[in-house]
Design a protein around this nucleic acid. Sequence first.
RNA 1: GCGAGAAUGGCGUAAUGGUAGCCGCGUUAGACUCAAAAUCUAAUGGUAGUGAUACUGUGAGGGUUCGAGUCCCUCUUCUCGCACCA
Length: 813
Amino acid sequence: MKGKKIIIKTRRKKIMNRQEVEKKWQDYWYSNKIFKAIDFSPKPKYYALIEFPYPSGAGMHVGHVRAFSSMEVVSRKRRMEGYNVLFPIGFDAFGLPTENYAIKTGIHPRDITDKNIKTFTEQLKQVGFSFDFDRVIDTTDESYYKWTEFIFRKLYDKGLAYRSHTYVNYCPTCKVVLSNEESQGGVCDRCNTQVIQKDKDVWFLKITSYAEDLLDGLKDLDTSQRIKVEQENWIGRSEGAFIDFSLDGTDDKFTVFTTRPDTLFGSTFTVIAPEHPLISKYKDRILNYSEVEEYKKNANLKTEFERVQLQKDKTGVKLLGLNAINPINGKALPIYVADYVMMGYGTGAIMAVPAHDTRDYEFAKKFNIDMIEVISGGDISKEAYTDIYNGTLVNSEFLNGLSVKDAKVKIIEELEKRGVGSRAVSYKMKDWAFNRQRYWGEPIPIIYCPNCGIVPLPYDDLPVVLPKIKNFEPNKDGESPLASLKEFTECSCPKCGSKARRETDTMPQWAGSSWYYLRYTDPNNDKEFASYDKMKYWLPVDWYNGGMEHVTRHLIYSRFWNEFLYDEGLVPYKEPYKKRTAQGLILGPDGEKMSKSKGNVIDPIDVVNEYGADVLRLYILFISDYEMATPWNKDAIKGCARFLDKVEALKEKVNKDQMDYTPQNKVIINKTIKEVSEDIESSKYNTAIAKLMILTNALTESESISRLDYETLLKLLNPFTPHIAEELWHLYNNDTIQYAEYPKYDPNSLISNTCTMVVSVNGKRRDEFTCERDLDDEKVKEIAISLDKVKPYIENGIKKIIVVKNKIVNIVV
RNA sequence: GCGAGAAUGGCGUAAUGGUAGCCGCGUUAGACUCAAAAUCUAAUGGUAGUGAUACUGUGAGGGUUCGAGUCCCUCUUCUCGCACCA
């Protein structure tokens, strides 16, 4: 402890006190509103967006700093490039952790949230982020969630919000219904409890009707392959056909979905999901109904996790007394109930073609069902032949001899002609389960009237305000605490005036974040969610950075809302984001994911207190490639502190009156300007910083440097380490560096007029020499073979000499 | 199982098909100091050698090329995403 104090003292004597200087400039920036975004400014606009944080009690995390730092650097650079920058911040403050904390402590979520937002805001300012703090939004503020309710109401009007009775993912610990997105892998997103299937009344948003648009919009999104592919997989489009199978002895039929209609002649049985309505409908005709009921019950008991575990072990029950008719050849096929067919995908029923589908193959083997080979080329005695590129149709009457591709077209034509099938597209994505039985969320503006049924609240009556309550515990039925509050639930029907009941479920946390980027353009508007003109000016978001984990949830949800609002004529652009990047995780020093329980959490504010905000910002971007997960190294950060000390020490060498580049540094400065700028644009912050270090090392080796040399370095540094840049800039300037013109490079000064030629023999480096640029190839060869170190290797004759201009000579012997 | 990505010193990482290891950390030696820290200087992939230097080296094995960390094929391991999706 004593030693540490001495270190700080020594540093203070030699160089600036970072924390003091940082505080000074933060006060200057924020009190003068240096980062204010100006509506309708004639400058070109730039909208940089980061995912707004959840204001947890733990405060800011180093992960937040990394997530925000990329757009922070870009925003500061854009301001210097003459843009009118919108770089906003807000808080996604509804949600379970706050509510759970309220249950534990009895403190109201409103008070917890306010306190956490205050702390978080202070921490953001301590790091010096250049947000426009005049546009802060809070999703739990009545003036904000009024518009979240408004959008829900719009969705309802269009039939895109509906109530349905289905099996849902339910977390027994959190006592909430979860969406597929929140229960990936069969466990609850928040608490890792195994999700169970529960029969419930649920609000859904019909995101599936936007599946095609959501897929389409990805085409123009500037993003990594990974982010695109993840969204595509999530939407999960597949092309195929609906085919009707009639039920033997009835006038009824059921429809299957298949991507392989070409194999229809090879179908030897059909399978329906345990939840398929056919079962109860033909209760009386199914001879083994009790066995089927039993199977159905067991299937529902299985958790998602168990289903995955038992993936290979197929189970099922044959429906006795009920057969399906293959529409193409009139053959009677047995119907099985099996849980490897899901009610939630396609039609919940399949035509099974064991010869050409792996799952059907396993099932057929287990239940001793026949197979018919209809695509030649494989060996179906060993395994299902699923190749769709090779192979020819056989045993399929009019399809025989065709390729899979052609057979698909022809069979669909035939089915359509006969009126028993059609081309179809199916999506993996399901409708979005949109309610939670909790208090701390946006109320759903719906009323249940005994006469009129479901009635939406009139627009003029919005918002439904969350009442201030004292007991936040959900009740025993897993209902929201609002359900036990008479003052809230009792109301009158807006249509007929009779006594009615208010919806007590609230919206999921993803609601508020589905449109927040719109609100930033006009955060204080109390007439509309944002003015059309302002949205037209600011949108679309030019660059959006956020977590990889939000690619399949938040990104898709928010694009859905935007596309919907666009169709309603309420927003000016169909796609909200032009470009999307994602940062990697920062792991603990032990290489594990940071967590309280592992005790490996690094608090960014501790780093600010020890090294300063500039060092924190610099290190977080220098640590590795921006997209890569990397462990924190408590020693490596010292290198960043040393670097900034060096930058400061350079001031002693500056010739104040020299306003051009010093000749010996001209090339490296121009090169650095070019490369740092390009690196920032392609999210290579780590190499950008490495190049700034190289430049600083070069300037340190110079006898003296010019004012322009130094100011150029400071400008290039400003996006990364604005405090020290501002402080040193003021040695020579009175105005802020934040709007100083970003340096430009001179293409003619990027290369020196001499170059180093490497000489290798058979690809092995042997020597090098320096010569003028673009020297004639013949002369280069002459010099190369005359070198003493090269001579011994070419004694036995030369086969060939390859010269790569200004780079390398390779002598082949 | 399917899809995407990755594998380079003691560590984090860097290299338009053209000097592998930039930049940073760490380590070693030296300077300053009574001493330590900080700072500065030098060295630092491995093996051999006092040394110039030589050989070797980017997960493994093949290939293309004058030349491969980079391109192609096969394999191994790891990370991420999806997962009985019909």
